[in-house]
């Protein structure tokens, strides 16, 4: 099946005055209609920037796409006009963010904010848009939708706000929904509900989902395919089940090892217990493999050369010494 969205060799740089700092380097992945792809990595690995670039809402001009393609159906979004992007955003490609309360305008009612996105893309009256907004809020199971539509965001819980955000994302006819850490800021009990809602939306509309998360276990539950990012590059990608069961890259293994400690908490994993050290800051990458300083299997070669992403069976790994016996299985 042809992918609905395909990213090829996407690079994003930040430039604040002096030298451009690479944030994302030559990242490629794709997602098919009705499927879910997870982008996994610690904070600062470039996954959120990748997500924003798909919508072309990077904080330009400080951060911008410097190379690659984003193919959506038959067009390249990197070179698409701003006007075309406005048509797509919130309508065909929509996005859900990490902090739902902060992501809503504090001085507008949630209803007005949903109505706004409906009317931006459809020439209908306020009244019709409002009826549609109530319908959407019901479909995301916001209790007492008729009344809560008039609430300001601060009067709703984080979970309710995220439901509003999902309703907003569903307002058009989305073919791709990008969910950037959609459950990280929420209580554990609410996390499962929000993920279930996204799945429900997906089966009803056949939209593709790109799930950005730091939690490999969450990715394994929700996605078919996963791309693990480290320091702006993809270091392992392939079917989530295989990778979850037998990671080939030492970093992926470390991420998996970190899950039991953090699966309950809502916080982003700071320094991983299993992986000593931190993600290198953009612009301060070592010359060899970016993970070498923290890797327990590091060899001399890793420090001198950067491994490319190479195919191993039906997954791709960027490591000179992957756990190959597991891949062979």
């Amino acid at each position: 099946m042809r992918p609905i969205l395909e990213v090829r060799e996407l690079s994003i740089h930040a430039s604040s005055g002096g030298q451009p700092i690479p944030l994302v380097e030559k990242v490629s992945f794709s997602v098919e209609k009705g499927a879910t792809l997870a982008l996994v990595g610690e904070s600062g690995c470039g996954k959120s920037m990748t997500a924003l670039s798909l919508m072309r809402i990077l904080p330009e001009p400080a951060v911008r796409i410097v190379g690659g393609e984003i193919r959506f159906e038959d067009e390249d979004l990197v070179s698409a006009s701003e006007r075309r992007m406005e048509q797509l955003r919130g309508n065909i490609i929509s996005m859900i963010f990490q902090d739902p309360i902060a992501s809503l305008n504090p001085i507008q009612t949630v209803g007005d904010q949903i109505v706004e996105v409906i009317r931006t893309h459809n020439p209908i009256s306020r009244k019709e848009a409002r009826a549609r907004a109530i319908e959407l809020l019901r479909s995301v199971r916001l209790p007492d939708a008729e009344r809560r539509i008039n609430y300001y965001p601060h009067r709703l819980s984080g979970g309710m706000c995220q439901r509003v955000m999902i309703a907003m994302a569903m307002a058009g006819a989305p073919k791709v929904i990008i969910a950037d850490e959609p459950t990280t800021a929420l209580d554990t009990t609410v996390q499962a509900q929000v993920m279930a809602l996204l799945r429900k939306a997906q089966t009803e509309t056949g939209t593709a989902i790109i799930l950005i998360t730091h939690n490999l276990a969450a990715a394994a539950e929700a996605a078919e395919n996963v791309a693990v990012m480290y320091a702006g590059r993809i270091i392992e990608q392939g079917p989530v089940r295989e990778i979850f069961l037998s990671p080939a890259h030492p970093y992926t293994e470390g991420l998996l090892g970190a899950i039991p400690d953090n699966a309950e908490g809502g916080v982003e994993i700071a320094p991983l217990a299993e992986i000593p050290g931190n993600v290198p800051r953009p612009g301060t990458l070592p010359s060899g493999c970016a993970f070498a300083p923290r890797c327990k299997n590091v060899q001399q070669r890793c420090r001198n050369e950067r491994p490319d992403l190479t195919a191993h069976g039906n997954r791709r790994v960027a490591c000179f010494f992957p756990y190959s016996q597991m891949i062979a299985q």
Partner: peptide, 16 residues
């Protein structure tokens, strides 16, 4: 602010 990013993601023009 985050909500401005949301507004952009809704497909509003910079003016809006």
């Amino acid at each position: 602010m985050d909500f401005v990013r949301t507004a952009k993601a809704k497909g509003l023009t910079p003016h809006q």
